[in-house]
Computed example of a mutant assay.
Amino acid sequence: MKKNEKEINNDIKQDNNQSKDEEIVCEEVIDNEETAQKTVGEAAVNQEIDKLKSQLEEKTKQCEEYFNMLQRTAAEFDNYKKRTAKEKGAIYTDAVSDSVASFLPVVDNIERALQASANDADFQSLKDGIELVHRQFKEVMKNLGVEEIKALGEKFDPNLHNAVMHIEDSEFGENVVIEEFQKGYILKDKVIRYSMVKVAN
């Protein structure tokens, strides 16, 4: 049975309407997919942002802890420096006080000798008094650990002796100290004063 022209036109219109409906459905599906993808993408971005925010908070807390630790350490070090300087000053004062206290009996005896010489004491008693003071002085030095540097007859040592004169003399060996002008003193390994000497050859 043949379709007439009107029926054919209706069929074409229906096909066109159906195609349009399919296109609309397709567009809606595509729009829905794009919206879904956007939603998934935004969720992933938001999740990443939240993760970065929590990491930033964590690192900020760590930085604050380190900064507080640094401030405490700096304050402790400053206190340590002040305490050490104070202790060092106290040690120096104690050492000087102890040394002076050791020499006070010597000063007392010198004053007694001066008083005795003012009373027209005889020469021998004055000499005895000076020898007593000298012995006492040497005893104090020994107790402090101070020793005389041996010089006379010793080989010249620039670490202990200060040569102020030099002579050539065949009676003496090479670099021998033959005269001492001023005694030198040493405390442990520290030279307090070098011996002033004359050296031969």
Rank of each mutant, 00 (worst) to 15 (best):
V199Y: 08
N46R: 06
E174A: 03
V197A: 04
G129C: 14
F137K: 06
D189L: 00
K198I: 00
N9C: 01
S19N: 02
R83S: 14
V45T: 10
V140Q: 12
D50V: 02
M69N: 14
L144R: 02
A95E: 05
L52W: 08
Y185C: 06
A101T: 11
A163F: 02
V133K: 02
I91C: 11
K138P: 00
I167G: 08
D11C: 03
D98K: 05
G153S: 04
Q71I: 11
E87M: 13
N143Y: 01
I178R: 02
M69Q: 13
K88N: 15
K155Y: 10
E64K: 14
E34S: 04
K188Q: 09
M141S: 13
F181S: 03
E42R: 10
T73H: 09
I49K: 13
V96P: 00
D122N: 15
S102R: 05
K127G: 08
V140C: 11
A151G: 15
K142I: 04
L56A: 12
E174D: 15
D94I: 04
I192S: 00
K61W: 00
N4C: 10
K38I: 02
A101L: 09
D128N: 15
V107R: 12
N46E: 12
S19L: 15
V100T: 06
K138N: 11
V96C: 01
A85K: 03
E87S: 12
M1E: 10
A118V: 06
M141Y: 10
L114A: 11
N119E: 15
S125C: 02
N46M: 08
Q124I: 05
M1V: 09
S97I: 02
A74V: 05
D15L: 11
Q62C: 04
V100A: 05
A90T: 06
D11M: 06
N143L: 02
N119H: 07
D31S: 04
S97D: 07
L70G: 07
E87F: 09
E27C: 05
V29A: 06
V176K: 09
L52F: 07
V197W: 08
H134E: 15
V40N: 10
M165W: 02
K183E: 13
R112E: 14
K61C: 01
R193E: 13
K190N: 12
N16T: 07
K13M: 14
S125Q: 08
F67S: 14
G145W: 03
K13E: 15
N79D: 06
T35C: 01
S117D: 04
G184L: 00
K150P: 01
R112F: 07
E154I: 03
D50E: 14
L56H: 12
G129N: 14
P158D: 13
R83A: 15
V25C: 05
R112D: 14
A85Y: 01
G89S: 14
L160K: 12
V107P: 04
T73S: 08
K81L: 13
K127C: 05
T39W: 00
Q182E: 15
D169Y: 07
D50M: 10
L114G: 11
E147C: 11
A151W: 09
